[in-house]
Design a protein around this nucleic acid. Structure first.
Length: 304
DNA sequence: TGCAGTGTTGCTTC
DNA sequence: CGAAGCAACACTGC
């Protein structure tokens, strides 16, 4: 899923229901997903056992987002971080374990074919479950000490939050100059530049600001940096307002789809006419930095 | 049957 | 040192 708008949608949902609840149990069928900070030696079953021990009996204090990570602060001094990677999503509701499978107790959007990929279940004091569903099993749970959370290797390298008030054009310009000879698309995907941007939203913000994904940072005109800065915030806010992007696996915590996929101008629009007003270009697809990029070959010109 | 894929990391090469 | 390419992770769907 999971770029900033999807992770924000999930975080907002969970922060409305989890705080003040106690974690009663933790279940998994894939212990490799769990990691303890500093731990590189323990077998996955032992790691999971210790992870579970730290969570059971603790109360959730808060749920927040940093980049594409969701941070759960607990009452006992621990915290854990969830990263959904490519296909993960977190759900919340009533589930029962039947015939070695987790199934929603009631009718509704939680009844989804993706349920066969449920790999983690937290039981909460309300009787509801927080469920982690992840087709490709790339997602991860990291246990940390709450007071050292910002030093976690999951978070410490992250660039600024693009929707915070302190993220100014000046800050953005400075971040970009960390890699002056890099191409703009891979630099945007680098979480050290700005936290939370992924393949869908980077294509959309480059389309909106009229920048070719292979433009070198040092070749970006000052005006274009500003256009990209404005487009970045507009596109990310648009994603949040749409409830995220469900072109693929993403669902909100109630199992509902977001709508941003209906608003794409570039991402997976290969062969379509460019929808920019007055532009008659065609959207093309090209691998840039190992990821597929979608852009208009007419209004997103490459300046060398 | 083959390959791309919303992400990240680590290794290698230039 | 930095940029770029690639493999690995694991699995589905086209």
């Amino acid at each position: 899923m999971p770029e900033l708008p999807e992770v924000q949608t999930t975080t907002s949902g969970l922060s409305g229901v989890l705080p003040k609840q106690t974690i009663k149990d933790v279940w998994t069928d894939w212990p490799k997903m769990f990691h303890l900070s500093q731990d590189t030696v323990l077998a996955s079953e032992i790691t999971f056992h210790n992870f579970k021990k730290a969570l059971i009996g603790a109360k959730v204090i808060s749920v927040s987002r940093r980049g594409k990570n969701i941070i759960f602060i607990l009452s006992n001094g621990y915290a854990f971080i969830v990263h959904m990677r490519m296909t993960g999503h977190l759900l919340y509701g009533k589930y029962i374990y039947k015939n070695k499978k987790w199934v929603p107790k009631e009718e509704g959007p939680l009844n989804d074919p993706f349920n066969r990929f449920i790999h983690v279940v937290l039981t909460l004091s309300s009787g509801n479950k927080m469920v982690f569903c992840d087709t490709r099993k790339f997602g991860r749970f990291d246990l940390e000490k709450a007071d050292a959370i910002e030093h976690s290797p999951r978070l410490s390298h992250l660039g600024p939050e693009p929707l915070e008030k302190t993220f100014t054009l000046k800050v953005f310009r400075k971040r970009l100059t960390l890699r002056p000879r890099g191409k703009i698309k891979p630099v945007l995907l680098d979480q050290r530049t700005v936290a939370g941007i992924g393949n869908i939203y980077s294509d959309e913000m480059l389309w909106l600001s009229g920048i070719h994904p292979e433009t070198k940072i040092e070749k970006l005109k000052e005006g274009k940096i500003k256009e990209l800065f404005v487009a970045m915030q507009k596109v990310l806010k648009g994603g949040i307002e749409s409830g995220g992007d469900s072109m693929s696996d993403y669902r909100n915590i109630l199992g509902e789809r977001g709508k941003f996929q209906e608003k794409h101008n570039a991402y997976r629009k290969t062969g379509k006419k460019c929808s920019k007003k007055g532009c008659d270009g065609i959207i093309v697809r090209k691998m840039v930095g190992g990821r597929s990029s979608h852009f208009c070959s007419k209004h997103q010109k490459l300046f060398k």
